[in-house]
Design a protein around this nucleic acid. Structure first.
Lengths: 346, 346
DNA sequence: CTGAAAGCGCTTACAG
DNA sequence: CTGAAAGCGCTTACAG
């Protein structure tokens, strides 16, 4: 690998001038610029990022901290990561995925090594130990998600209110009046303070009340098997249900299959609408699920860009909330009662 | 952050001695050691990995190159990554995930920056452009998977022969005599030279012949939807089939659901046995699938360890092939014909 | 617009 | 067993 000194020698300039050109940090005369660029091309020069990092005290590496123990890493998460990595690359940063625990211990360990300029925090808890670690060490960070205390914290998140409102409105407009929310299992220690589960539950209670709907919430863990059980519970305890909203994507697959196993047609007897899912997972179900599509690509990108602005001292982006959007599939239809009674118009 | 110089000052030694102790690279007197360790503890010292990297010309960072465009990143892949990251950490390395294209262009770009000591290659093609790039740049690497040309290349892979042999034997012993392999779509440019698809196909043809079974192969892409179509094709063109082996995990979900949609009971009418799947995905199906479990955790670890030995100049690990192992679920049973005719013993 | 030089925080021959 | 010093390949005041 050629070094900057070799480029400078070949171009007949000093190493400083090469650096100025490369970083666009001081003006360089056109003729000089041409000679340097020629020399770089001739030598196939690529700047050594390690040396740059040491000299500038900026590694240009961003870590995406993902609690792989507590949360499955699936297609949904991959979307966040891939879009974040892409956004980082566009701004001359590397984004690396760090599987670190929720408690902040590993994170502190890693931060001490000075490898990263900043951290994108995934799967944020309402009161997140990692935030404390990041603040103590003075590490810039952005959250994809939100703690309860937010003052001064850079973040982006799903707009749960709009997501739930749109989902409920869609079902309501089709004529559904008896909904069930399959919510998270808040007894599970991984989730009792997990933002999305809490916020979706809160939003649902409020919005269902606005529509004067009876509020029925079934708790359910984040597995297909748990979804089966939730389906059984719905059929047994809430036989009049015409539509089911499901928070977790794995549970949603289970609810659908579970309803079918119990002889219910989806969407003939019951509609199923997952609140946070990606098309790939929706396609795993039969019928293919109608979903509120997780805005992973947008949020991965926005979160990373927010952090980078922070790192570069630019004016911070305002916190952004992005709703999941309805993507039609085959699991939502009009309720039988509506077709019979003519509710829902059109 | 404390620096090594500060530690040295506090312990009353030279910076070199601290370094020798930290790297265990020269003997240090017990008393000196105690003083240094005390100083490090007092200051909460953590070695700066960037400075270490520049001085030693070793970053201790390993990149896992994953072609995110060409291959979905799902739960299966996450297993490889997580176990590889864990193995790396145990040996004092960082493993970072790099989404880079199959053609080697991005890889070359990234390697030039000098950020990584070595690369773990995922989703290897039979003739992989990335291997050329790695060789040209002199970058140490290990493959999880195999090119056709293998001389001198560090690699680990799935033992497709044993996997297919065990799967076929299991079905054969249960009494199945009419099998179908749902194979990859080799017309798909992403896959026509993709090792696993080619090798499983080859192994199946050989092993089925050994069992004197008729060889039926249905091509199918890597989506649930494609699996539905494969199911239809099986029912239509191969009505006597009693068991289906499926290469791709998404396709396997689709085959199962597709058979059910066509009124077939799984496993009553047909058994379904995916050849490469993780339990999480198997649980998404109803009934839960019996699978050959992808040895992701073993291979991620072995591949990383092979690379690290290479990096440290230790005797190389021999190439290792690890078979997928049968994990019982509810999608494989005896064929109706066997129960009727008493084939299959016991 | 360009250059000489200090310095980032370590590792590593070399010397003792 | 320990230390003085060069050097890794850059960036960045400072000076001109």
């Amino acid at each position: 690998m050629a070094t900057m000194q070799e480029v400078a020698d070949r171009a007949g300039v000093s190493i400083a001038t090469v650096s100025f050109l490369l970083n666009d940090t001081k003006p360089v005369a056109a003729a000089t610029r041409a000679r340097i660029e020629q020399a770089m091309a001739d030598l196939g020069y690529r700047r050594n990022v390690v040396a740059r990092a040491l000299a500038s005290r900026r590694t240009h590496i961003i870590a995406m901290a993902y609690p792989a123990l507590e949360h499955k890493f699936g297609t949904s998460t991959a979307e966040f990561f891939t879009s974040a990595a892409e956004a980082a690359r566009e701004d001359d940063y590397h984004l690396v995925l760090w599987p670190v625990g929720n408690d902040g211990v590993e994170l502190r360990e890693l931060l001490g090594q000075g490898l990263v300029d900043g951290v994108v925090l995934m799967e944020v808890q309402l009161d997140d130990a990692r935030v404390g670690v990041l603040r103590e060490t003075g590490t810039p960070f952005a959250m994809i998600g939100r703690t309860t205390e937010l003052e001064g914290l850079t973040h982006v998140d799903i707009d749960f209110d709009t997501t739930v409102a749109d989902a409920v409105a869609h079902l309501y407009d089709l004529g559904h009046r008896q909904l069930v929310l399959v919510s998270g299992d808040l007894d599970d220690p991984r989730f009792h303070a997990y933002g999305p589960w809490v916020r979706i539950g809160d939003a649902y209670r409020r919005i269902a009340a606005e529509h004067r709907l009876e509020i029925v919430v079934v708790e359910c863990s984040d597995t297909t098997r748990a979804g089966h059980e939730a389906a059984a519970q719905i059929v047994r305890d809430h036989p009049g249900t015409t539509a089911v909203l499901v928070m977790n994507e794995f549970a949603a697959l289970g609810v659908t299959a579970g309803l079918q196993r119990l002889g219910r047609d989806v969407p003939g007897d019951l509609s199923v609408l997952p609140l946070l899912m990606v098309p790939e997972t929706a396609a795993m179900s039969n019928p293919e699920l109608t979903i509120m599509r997780t805005p992973g690509p947008e949020l991965g990108r926005l979160g990373t860009q927010s952090l980078i602005r922070h790192l570069e001292g630019a004016a911070p982006l305002p916190p952004q909330l992005v709703p999941a959007k309805l993507v039609p599939g085959e699991s939502v239809g009009r309720p039988r009662s509506a077709s019979a009674e003519g509710i829902g118009g059109r």
